[in-house]
């Protein structure tokens, strides 16, 4: 399993191939298609990430110390964003996820999604993923 830093670096390189926003967004939307989809039974209010303008459902499970996420969204850019996070965090140690830096999002040119704006769900998604990881470390 590659480390978070390695995966982030790979993503940065992938996004760097596009010199305009259209390419980056097309690629991001494409990432959403590879997202490990959440089981329909978890597509309930309980698993909704609060603070997103679109609906995002997120589920986490662990295998020992390692955390595995599945998710879905009704908006395809949002789905790409959550896929981006899942790609980096999936299969990592709960402890490491809880302390993950994730500033690579800024570096790949998606900074606007990190603004503390209520219409923006990425910050909420990160918080929720870390909370799941934290909860798992305590069990």
């Amino acid at each position: 399993m590659a480390s978070m830093v390695e995966i982030e670096k790979e993503l940065e390189e992938d996004f760097a191939l596009f010199d305009d926003w259209e390419g980056k967004y097309d690629y991001l939307i494409g990432l959403g298609k590879d997202l490990p989809l959440i089981d329909d039974k978890y597509k309930t209010d309980e698993y909704i990430v609060r603070g997103c303008q679109s609906r995002v459902w997120l589920h986490a499970a662990n295998n020992g110390d390692f955390v595995f996420y599945s998710a879905d969204s009704d908006a395809i850019i949002t789905k790409g964003l959550v896929a981006l996070l899942v790609k980096v965090l999936n299969g990592q140690k709960a402890e490491e996820i809880a302390h993950a830096d994730l500033s690579f999002i800024d570096r790949i040119g998606l900074k606007e999604h990190l603004s503390p704006n209520r219409s923006n769900g990425l910050v909420s998604m990160i918080k929720q993923m870390k909370l799941y990881a934290l909860a798992l470390t305590k069990h």
């Binding site: 926003w21 259209e22 967004y25 303008q53 679109s54 009704d74 908006a75 395809i76 850019i77 949002t78 606007e112 219409s119």
Partner: peptide
């Protein structure tokens, strides 16, 4: 198309609309 997706692309095009 979800309004959030539309609003995001419109913003990239310099067009400010409200979505949600």
């Amino acid at each position: 198309i979800h309004p959030f997706d539309m609003g995001t692309i419109l913003d990239k095009m310099g067009v400010a609309v409200r979505t949600g």
